[in-house]
């Protein structure tokens, strides 16, 4: 679980932390990645590792489709467009029963196999997840240190200035979107065989909020933030279980804690625990509306 949410956190961080764009559609990439991989494995009997490129590619194309119209929209309107997209895709997962089996979900997703070696134990999944998330961290680290990453931040802080220096803001935004979509797709492909069952509610709007919570609390604009955020956020349910709170109430209490953390962090430490970009940063006068 930790590695999967870490990858999702890293991927959303590219948008929220580096570009300052709030995307509510992150569960879409996660979900589409999971569905593509699971369906290819079940319907066509493909090997898990061969489905990964299809998942990633599918989500990258999807990210491209979302990113293009979104470029014209700012702040609230961008957020709304991603919200519309999230709800639309969720509705498709739910209602396109001939492919996704709708609310019944897809069951019996087989374990990944590589050269006859089966990944089915939890520790084996951990190792696999570790390899994938290490790859994701590597990509994000490269981006962080590269001119590409710095340009993203420049666009975030003052788009007009970045454009006036000859940076093609639209191209950078779309690239960041596509990379983020690809990483989230791999996380989705991982979750499908790990819990061996997926249904649309795994990829609802709540899940997008959850990923946002991870990086708002952990921190935005660098690599440490999502790591600590994922760790802390996944620790909370375990603590509640340790306190032996009944299951029915625990789900609600967990949500209340997440909500309070969101409000408090934004007020008291808007860059997150280990982040470096304060979400509350005042925009340059030109970018204010």
């Amino acid at each position: 679980m930790f590695e999967i949410y870490l990858m999702l956190g890293l991927s959303l961080n590219l948008l929220l932390g580096y570009l300052g764009l709030l995307s509510l559609a992150h569960a879409v990439f996660y979900g589409v990645g999971a569905y593509i991989s699971a369906l290819l494995m079940i319907r066509l009997g493909m090997n898990f590792f061969f489905t990964l490129p299809f998942s990633a590619l599918g989500c990258m194309v999807l990210a491209l489709i979302i990113a293009l119209p979104s470029l014209r929209l700012k702040d609230d309107y961008f957020m709304l467009a991603t919200l519309a997209f999230q709800s639309l895709v969720f509705s498709i997962f739910y209602n396109w029963t001939s492919v996704t089996r709708g609310p019944y979900g897809i069951t019996g997703i087989p374990s990944p196999q590589l050269f006859g070696y089966k990944v089915s134990e939890i520790w084996q999944f951990c190792v696999l997840g570790f390899i994938f998330s290490a790859a994701a961290i590597y990509v994000c680290k490269k981006i962080h240190a590269s001119p590409f990453g710095r340009t993203l931040k420049a666009i975030r802080d003052d788009e007009l200035l970045a454009v006036s220096l000859g940076k093609n803001a639209a191209k950078f935004k779309v690239s960041a979107f596509v990379i983020a979509g690809g990483i989230a797709a791999i996380a989705g492909a991982m979750i499908a065989p790990y819990i061996s069952y997926i249904d649309p509610t795994c990829f609802a709007l709540d899940e997008s909020f959850f990923i946002i919570t991870i990086i708002v609390i952990g921190g935005t604009g660098n690599l440490k933030g999502p790591v600590i955020g994922t760790f802390l956020i996944l620790l909370i349910p375990e603590i509640l279980r340790f306190l032996s709170i009944p299951d029915a109430a625990a789900a609600n209490i967990r949500q209340i804690i997440y909500g309070l953390l969101l409000i408090l962090m934004l007020r008291l430490r808007p860059q997150g625990i280990l982040g470096e970009y304060g979400l509350n940063k005042i925009l340059s006068p030109y970018a204010q509306t």
Partner: peptide
């Protein structure tokens, strides 16, 4: 004033959830 719109939006989600 002039804060990025992301902040009130995430705050309002937080309030809603709680």
């Amino acid at each position: 004033a002039g804060v990025r719109r992301t902040v009130p939006i995430i705050t309002s989600f937080g309030i809603y959830i709680v």
